[in-house]
């Protein structure tokens, strides 16, 4: 049955319209969790607010479990799900540059757009920066192409690397994530900051 677009249950334009609706859900959830606040996001790296860790890992786990259950019920054909290819060096290099950008800018691209939509001016500046950064990349592409395409590993899955079933790996990730959440909640008390209050349910 799914993915709908691959099995041509919906048209290309419907797909784009649904992308818009999915985006609304994405933006709404991000904002409701305070991902529109750079201090909340940055709190992750100082321990005073570990929301990012909790939301991020819970979402990844729910996504992974959801996919496997849908496949189990025959609702989705996993072989048509896009798996991002792994180019080891550019993945690490890009991640390092992004990490630096994260700690200096306080946002990532998705959250900056979400923050700008509620009027955060620093987020607007961040988005301006993203445009410059992407432009620098597209212009400098001939110089970077070698590094960009180096160490191509195909689209491997982590469970294949460890020789586990997908379900088993997910179970282990759940245990690891719950342990991290526990550490995170401990850190929020340990590194609490007098001028920053976590305001959540």
């Amino acid at each position: 049955m799914g993915p709908l677009i691959v099995n041509e249950i919906i048209s290309e334009n419907t797909n784009l319209f649904l992308a818009f609706l999915i985006g609304i859900g994405f933006g709404f959830v991000l904002e409701s969790n305070g991902f529109s606040s750079s201090r909340r996001l940055a709190g992750m790296f100082y321990g005073y607010d570990t929301t990012v860790l909790k939301v991020f890992f819970t979402a990844a786990i729910v996504g992974a479990i959801g996919l496997l259950f849908m496949s189990l019920f025959g609702w989705i054909d996993l072989s048509y799900i896009y798996i991002n290819p792994t180019y080891l060096w550019s993945s690490i290099g890009g991640g390092v540059v992004m990490g630096a950008g994260f700690i200096l800018g306080g946002y990532c691209p998705g959250t900056s757009v979400c923050a700008a939509s509620i009027g955060k001016l620093d987020a607007l500046a961040f988005i301006g920066g993203i445009f410059i950064g992407v432009f620098l990349f597209t212009e400098g592409y001939p110089l970077l192409e070698g590094f960009y395409k180096a160490k191509y590993l195909g689209s491997p899955l982590l469970n294949e690397v460890f020789n586990l079933s997908r379900g088993m790996l997910i179970f282990l990730i759940i245990l690891a994530a719950l342990a991290m959440f526990w550490v995170g909640e401990w850190a929020e008390k340990r590194f609490a900051h007098e001028d920053y209050k976590i305001n959540q349910k």
Binding site: I65, L68, F69, S71, L72, S165, R166, G167, M168, I170, F171, I174, L175
Partner: peptide, 9 residues
């Protein structure tokens, strides 16, 4: 997680 780890893919 236990269910998904136990059932075959």
């Amino acid at each position: 997680g236990l269910i998904i780890a136990a059932v075959p893919e």
